[in-house]
Every structure is written in structure tokens, then in C-alpha cells.
Lab assay of single mutants.
Amino acid sequence: LKLEELTVSELRQQLRLRGLPVSGTKSMLLERMRG
């Protein structure tokens, strides 16, 4: 599964599971997911 294919709400869910901030735009969330 490519990160880009996730919805913003799915990205936020994944970030929350990792204890990361869930604020910002989709591109910011993607950068955060990539670490």
C-alpha cells in the first residue's frame, strides 16, 4: 500500500497509532509518516 493512496483520515489514524502529531496538510502528514 502506497502512503499517497491513504486518505487524510487514514493517515491521521496511522500517525495516532505511532504517537505522532496529526495536525497539518496531507503532504505534512505524509512527510511525518516517512519519518
Rank of each mutant, 00 (worst) to 15 (best):
V22Q: 12
M33E: 11
L11P: 02
L29G: 04
V8Y: 03
M33I: 12
R18P: 07
S23Q: 11
L1W: 13
M28V: 14
L15P: 02
V22D: 13
E4M: 05
L1N: 15
L11Q: 03
S27N: 14
E4V: 00
T7C: 03
M28L: 12
V8S: 08
V22R: 06
L6N: 11
P21E: 13
M28A: 14
L3C: 00
L20I: 02
Q14E: 13
G24W: 05
L30Y: 00
L6A: 07
E5N: 13
R18C: 10
S9T: 15
E5F: 05
L1K: 13
S23W: 00
V22I: 09
L6S: 08
T7R: 03
M33C: 09
E10T: 01
R16V: 10
L20R: 00
S9E: 15
S27H: 09
R12M: 07
T25M: 04
E31N: 09
G19F: 02
G19S: 07
R34M: 05
L1V: 11
G35T: 01
L15C: 15
L6I: 09
M28C: 06
E4C: 04
T7E: 07
R34E: 12
K26T: 05
L1G: 06
G24Q: 00
G19E: 09
L11F: 00
L29K: 07
L3Y: 03
R34F: 04
G35F: 08
L15N: 08
T7F: 01
R16S: 12
V8N: 06
M33T: 03
P21M: 02
L11S: 03
R16Q: 10
S27Y: 01
V8D: 06
L6G: 03
G35D: 15
E10I: 01
K2R: 13
M33D: 06
L17R: 11
T7V: 00
Q13C: 11
L17V: 13
M28P: 00
E10A: 05
S9L: 08
P21R: 06
P21K: 04
E5V: 07
E4S: 09
Q13R: 09
P21T: 09
L20Y: 08
L15Q: 07
L11K: 02
G24R: 00
L29Y: 04
R18S: 10
K26D: 04
Q14S: 09
M28S: 06
Q13I: 13
G19K: 09
L6Y: 06
L3W: 05
R12E: 09
L17F: 08
E10K: 06
T7S: 13
L1M: 13
M33L: 15
L6C: 08
E5S: 10
E4L: 00
G19A: 01
R12N: 00
E5P: 07
E10G: 04
V22C: 09
P21C: 07
S23N: 13
G19M: 05
L15V: 06
R12Q: 14
R32G: 07
R18Q: 14
K2H: 14
S23I: 10
Q13G: 09
E10F: 00
L30W: 04
K26E: 06
M28T: 13
S9W: 11
Q14G: 06
S23C: 08
R16E: 14
M28H: 14
L17S: 09
R18V: 11
V22Y: 15
R16F: 12
M28G: 04
R32W: 03
R34N: 15
L30A: 06
L15E: 06
R32S: 04
E5K: 11
R12P: 02
V8E: 14
G19L: 03
R12C: 06
E5C: 11
V22P: 01
T25C: 05
G35R: 05
G19W: 00
L15M: 10
G35N: 11
E31T: 07
P21S: 11
V8H: 04
R18M: 15
E10H: 00
K26W: 06
L6D: 06
M33R: 02
L11V: 03
L29A: 05
R18E: 11
T7Q: 07
S23G: 14
E5Q: 08
R32V: 06
L30D: 06
T25E: 13
S9P: 08
R12G: 03
V8T: 14
V22T: 15
L30V: 12
L15Y: 02
L30E: 09
M28E: 15
